[in-house]
Write a protein that binds this DNA or RNA. Structure first.
Lengths: 124, 124
DNA sequence: GACATACTGAACCATATGGTTCAGTGTTCT
DNA sequence: AGAACACTGAACCATATGGTTCAGTATGTC
């Protein structure tokens, strides 16, 4: 099951790694749009845009529905929470790591100046 | 200059779209490591790991330094703030969009039943 | 000096990506 | 019925990705 989360993270990050696709998400955040609309706005062929939409769909970020001859694209209810969670955890650990560095530095300082034992640490 | 941000976002998201690389970041968050250390832990050849490190370096997420014959890898001070900012903005707009949908639905209801103006909104 | 270690670079492989063109298919408009 | 429209699918292209092997090079160790 960890693998599924991993695969979804892979797909989400990969889908977001293209600025055209980020632009499409942005656009769909304003209003739903057809493939033609998006192709015109981002100056590319219908086929090209269809592929981007396919990537976003497979990543679960966009849903589409075809009515008559037009396929309408909308943001899905996938709020990128897993991505946000990964990122938050990364940043938290990053901060902790630098707190530890602070501690090490403080300890080294204490070793250098052993009589000043009541120095406050910056963070933590 | 918007393009530079775009390119950095591209590189950051692309770097994060592989679970081995996310694992490496995680590992480096605990402690610095050599290419050999990482290659062994993630069960791949030195050359393979070197490539992943190259991707992470180019994305600015990792810095390396070669001393003697060993290259040591560390997290860089790049805290993924741009990525976090993009994500936060996306989620914020996503929320706003669904709030707007609530409003539209409420208005439609009012138009259908003009005498019942005090109905509470239902959150989708 | 001989040998092991740690990495590097080139070459290769299969597959994916980001795009195109071109030839359909099905829908809507007149 | 015929034309215009919106999309689809296949084929193609150049480049990137995620991995490998193999043959170096530089650096430590005995």
């Amino acid at each position: 099951m960890v693998q599924y989360v991993d695969a979804r993270l892979d797909a989400s990050f990969a889908a977001l790694s293209d600025s055209t696709r980020r632009g499409v998400l942005d656009q769909l955040g304003r209003d739903q749009a057809s493939i033609s609309d998006l192709a015109e706005r981002f100056q590319m062929t219908l086929t090209g845009m269809r592929k981007h939409i396919g990537v976003l769909e497979r990543a679960g970020l966009v849903v589409t529905e075809k009515v008559g001859r037009v396929r309408t694209c909308r943001l899905s209810d996938h709020r990128l929470d897993e991505v946000a969670a990964w990122l938050a955890q990364y940043q938290q650990r990053w901060d902790e790591r630098f707190d530890q560095l602070d501690d090490v530095i403080a300890e080294l300082k204490q070793r250098d100046e052993p009589d000043r034992t009541d120095q406050p640490h910056k963070r933590k």
